[in-house]
Amino acid sequence: MRPAIDIRSLRVDYGDFVAVDDLTLTVPPGEVFGLVGPNGAGKTSTFRVITTLMEPTYGEVILDGVDVFEDLETARRIIGYMPDLAPVPSDLKVQEFLEFHAAAYGLGNRAQRRDRVAECLEEVALTDQRDKWCKQLSRGQTQRVVLAKTLLHRPRVLVLDEPASGLDPLARRDLRSALRRLAATGATVFISSHILSELAEMCTSLCVMNRGKLLASGTAEEVRHQLGTNERILTANLLCKPGEAREWLASHASVHDLQVEGHQIVFGFKGDDDAQADLMEGLIRLGVRLRSFEEKRSSFEDILVEVAENNRRS
């Protein structure tokens, strides 16, 4: 199966500044794929090239088998682009706004356009808002109307720039459900967001960019591993006095910042899942009675904060 998005050796320069530096990335169809990174990582420039809004310094972008720069019109029919904070007219109703864009796309006769508008409104769960004035919509409803507009011509690749920006938790949940339904139909969703916890939940896979370069890609767990962040905080809750367990743990090079509070031992641990399992097994063999063993791993947001802080230090 050919990739939905195939980016090869992409570079974008603004004078002497390199915004995107030799980016190579492949996204299969049916994915909700996240693009994350700190400000200045190259996300916006990448999106602008993919959506044909600018030409790169060099490189290739192929969407569903179509070279974006060799067949621009066909590529644009494949793409559905939803920019951050896309405006909607205040003097049109939702139905009118979508029918206007359906006509601009040349989607059949009036009856066919109305049917397609109804399908897209149902897809984003806004059928009951079709006769509402756009100016009366909430932020979340506005975002979903713009998503419905983006879906009108049945794009095979959707590029969404910060679609969850400013949405409340309920609106983000509705948007997440809509994107998952789209991916289930075979569409590919390429999405950027600064709401990192939401991206980790929303996306089937993602990549991290920094200073124009691709740092890691894959599932959230694979990205965490590729970035070398095996650090975690472990808490051992004991049914016995912690003295012997504390001394045994402190002797391990992978254990640091060990603290004891009553029958609870909290410590940092640097190691993989097998090493953690060995640690638990060692405590049990020592005769330590464990009531529970809890783990807190670095969140995806922690990873991005670390990347941004490394930017400042360098």
Rank of each mutant, 00 (worst) to 15 (best):
G80D: 12
Q136P: 04
E306V: 00
R114V: 07
E301L: 03
T127Q: 14
A164C: 09
S299I: 02
D278N: 13
F100I: 01
Q264D: 04
A220D: 02
N311T: 01
A277L: 08
E294K: 05
L152W: 05
M82A: 04
S165R: 06
N311H: 00
D115C: 12
L167D: 10
I195D: 03
I265V: 12
V288I: 12
V307I: 09
M1C: 05
L160C: 02
L10E: 06
L98W: 03
R154A: 05
I50S: 01
A86Y: 08
T44E: 10
S192D: 03
L35D: 10
G218Q: 08
A148G: 00
C120V: 07
E247V: 12
G30S: 10
V208D: 12
S45T: 11
V305G: 04
G186Q: 13
L167H: 12
S138R: 09
A111Q: 07
D274G: 02
C203H: 12
Q95T: 05
K213F: 06
C203G: 12
N310S: 09
V255H: 10
I265E: 07
E55R: 15
S90F: 10
L147T: 05
T44F: 14
R297W: 01
R114M: 06
G106F: 08
T142K: 15
Y58S: 11
H263R: 15
S299D: 02
E247Q: 15
Q276T: 04
T127V: 08
R114S: 10
V61W: 06
I62V: 15
D257R: 10
R291M: 04
H256I: 00
I303L: 11
T235M: 06
Q136D: 14
D161R: 07
P163R: 08
C203R: 07
T51K: 08
I5R: 14
L126N: 13
K213M: 04
A118W: 01
E261T: 15
N310L: 07
G34E: 03
G282C: 13
A111D: 11
W248V: 00
R291D: 11
L234P: 04
R232A: 14
D257W: 00
I195F: 05
N210C: 14
I62M: 13
A104E: 11
W133S: 08
I195S: 03
L53S: 02
L239D: 11
A200F: 05
A102N: 03
F100R: 01
